[in-house]
Computed example of a mutant assay.
Amino acid sequence: MISQIKSLYRDKNNEDYYFGFIRALDEGNDYYFKKKDFDNLPIEDISIGMKVSFTNHDKESGQRFATEIKIIKSDADSINDSNEIVNKIGVEEYKSYLIDSINKIKLINDPSEFEDSVFILLKTIGVNKTFQFDRINQAGKADGFFIIENLAVMYDCTLQGNFESFKEEQIENYINKLSQKAQLTFNTKKIDGGITPKTIQLTGKSKQVWIITKGESKELSDFDNVKVKEISIYDLCEIYKKRLNDITYDNEKLVNDLIFIGK
């Protein structure tokens, strides 16, 4: 099966160990892999986007994993390996590449891909405690939750423009979950594709419900001390741009931008 490396992570406790996911191009599924499945190649020899072939496996639990992974060499790879082409860029061009890469989320039109990309974007802009909910029986439920300092947000992603009418009941459910409980418990996705329960304390937090779209950011309602907002993916991309261009941009500024986005 020919595919590409979608993500790659170095183990925090063992720098020689790594793991990640491979995206099967023909079917759109992601497969988990470990270092041993890559013939124990050093992480420096592997990169995101690299084309590979592998043997796929599916567990009854729904988890997918890859073994016998092999790198597929192309003519371009051969040229790069021989150092005949050397790319040199400056820091400003590098920042431009990063911003352009983040902005490509605007081109995503598949709902599941949009949801996954929003999760990645939130992590990238510095919201480290972002949790993506399990998709099993997800209909009518939120896509994820994040907490940063005093702000707690339950979010839902949609590509539909006129969402307020058909999401009215869902939004009310999100408000109830945030307003009526001192803590929130949910199933979140693990790195290997499994799920694990997570409990977050909500007492004393500023609570918001976000509907993340390609529209314009605005506050929709404020009910029972829970603000409901439509949040534009474009504004989240702008926060990422600010982080890159402002060397004084810290967690305090990030929290302030997130709290008042849509005002």
Rank of each mutant, 00 (worst) to 15 (best):
S61E: 06
F54R: 01
F33N: 01
S78A: 12
R64M: 11
E84G: 01
S61N: 15
S74A: 03
N40Q: 06
H57I: 00
E60R: 14
I79M: 13
K36S: 10
S78R: 11
S47A: 12
K73G: 03
D75Q: 12
G62Y: 08
D30V: 03
S78N: 08
S53M: 03
T55L: 10
K51N: 13
A66M: 07
S78L: 15
S47C: 09
G49D: 12
D77P: 00
E84P: 01
R64K: 15
F33A: 01
K70L: 12
V86Y: 04
D75K: 13
E84I: 04
I72R: 12
F65A: 04
F54I: 08
D30E: 15
A66D: 07
S78D: 02
S61C: 07
D58R: 14
I48V: 15
K36R: 13
L41Y: 08
M50W: 07
N40K: 13
N87T: 11
D81W: 07
A66V: 01
I48A: 07
A76P: 00
D39H: 14
I43T: 01
G62L: 08
K51H: 11
D77S: 06
D58L: 14
K34L: 15
Y31S: 11
V86H: 08
F54L: 07
D81G: 00
I43V: 14
Q63D: 02
N40I: 07
V86S: 12
K59Q: 14
K51R: 13
E44R: 13
K34V: 10
S74G: 05
K34C: 12
N40S: 13
K34A: 03
I72V: 15
F54H: 02
V91A: 09
V86I: 14
Y31R: 00
V86F: 04
V52T: 02
S53D: 07
K36M: 10
G49P: 04
I89A: 09
I89Q: 07
P42S: 08
I69R: 01
F54C: 05
I89G: 00
D39G: 06
